[in-house]
Amino acid sequence: MKPAAFDYAQPDTLGEALALMAKKGEAARICAGGQSLAAMMNMRLATPEVLIDIAGLAELQTIDIANGAIEVGAGVTQAELLAWPKLAEFQPLLAQLLPWVGHYQTRARGTVCGSLAHSDPSSELPLALALLGGDVFVRSQRGHRIINAEDFQVGMMATALEADEMIVAARFPLARPATASAFEEVAQRHGDFAIVAVGAVGNKDGVRLGVGGVADTPGVVDLTWPVADAALNDFAWSLGGADDQHATARYRRELVRRIGRRVIDEVHNALP
């Protein structure tokens, strides 16, 4: 289990990285923490010709509050965001959800934006971005653009990024006043890929429910109080999950109904 050969590039600036991406296109792959990519490369599922390591770019290491959102630079690890003192205050959902991302040892290296770019259907962070209606700030040599969560992840491990584009920051909207959030995950073991991950954010008008691990991309639905069982049921069916060796589609749908109900109730009870 050894990776195929690749060129290794460690740009000194973001500009250098973008120039190299423009030049290499599909042959290049960005590596920030590499906690998913390196494993896939070891198995030769992924065989990029050039690996562009952005972990050392100082300009991507920041966590800021700007434009009503927490802006997380592409070099920020999951552990660093989790340890950010203001996290629970400004976006409690992230504080609830980040401990479920991988393990202590992979969070130390894995980045928030890398998880978004990888877009594993069972990952928690793409679910958070979708649920919160966040976006990603994307750069290329051609310029920049902002891609909303709903447009960003287009399929299993597939995003709207062009070959020369790179996420430079993810933006998670700040928790609004008089809202509440909840998150729960069912996995075979602690730290495993989610069979079903369920998050919810709500206010006095209604609740937004998000589900990962079932469909190819996070599923999100807006529901109004009181949330009817029928609405949860229809949402569960709409995700179109499939059987795999860890769980049946039937079980996943049931978890969407049951855990969905649990997190919705938790949000409801936590509302002021």
Binding site: Q188, I195, D234, W237, S238, G240, A249, R250, Y251, E254
Partner: peptide, 25 residues
């Protein structure tokens, strides 16, 4: 006795999709 395997034994008949819902798989 994984959760899913137990679910296959313990879950009763599943609530069908409502007629008005959008088509799924």
């Amino acid at each position: 006795l994984t959760r899913s395997n137990l679910a296959e034994i313990l879950l009763g008949e599943e609530a069908p999709e409502s007629a008005s819902a959008s088509p799924s798989t």
